[in-house]
């Protein structure tokens, strides 16, 4: 299990390749990457992600440990950036390795659902009108109930 919280960009290809290599007993690798998306109407200049150093790492570790206890997983990777990002930049990635794909897919979805509303990150979008904090969506909170 590897949890990384960093300001710098990450190399998705290299991370995925590294994560997928070296297992002989894991038949399924799932990766998900979140990308900064331009917003409808006004052009997004940049996104700034704030986080709570210390709690962020603990929360991500807790979420990953819970995934490992619920599904048959060989490995979990979570990388999440903070700081200044531009449209098209990769914000975060999760990867799961499991003997079979169902566990790998479900655990990746679980990780995404939980880190959206239980890891202490806050996004602020900047357009020509200035900065606006992204509001949490009810559907993101509702998504937790299915687990």
């Amino acid at each position: 299990m590897r949890i990384v919280v960093q300001e710098a960009p990450f190399d998705f290809g290299a991370e995925a390749q590294d994560f997928a290599s070296g297992h002989t007993d894991m038949g399924a690798i799932v990766t998900f990457t979140g990308v900064v998306r331009d917003i409808a109407g006004d052009r997004l200049d940049r996104m700034v992600i704030e986080h709570y150093p210390g709690m962020t790492e603990k929360a991500l570790e807790g979420i990953a440990e819970e995934a490992v206890s619920r599904w048959n997983l060989g490995d979990v990777l979570v990388i999440h950036r903070y700081g200044d990002l531009r449209p098209g930049d990769m914000i975060m990635m999760v990867a799961t390795a499991a003997p079979h794909r169902k566990d790998a897919f479900e655990a990746a979805e679980y990780l995404m659902d939980y880190l959206k509303s239980r890891a202490p990150f806050w996004k602020q979008e900047f357009t020509s009108d200035g900065g606006k904090w992204v509001a949490a969506k009810d559907e993101d909170e509702d998504a937790l109930s299915r687990w």
Binding site: Y52, M55, L115, K116, W133, A135, A136
Partner: peptide, 28 residues
Amino acid sequence: ALDQELSDFDAPLEGVREVAFFPPMTGG
């Protein structure tokens, strides 16, 4: 959050060293 664990407003503060207030999180 109390000592970096999510909590609620009714929670006791005894023994707590760090309290953080923030809006609902928007990670991912």
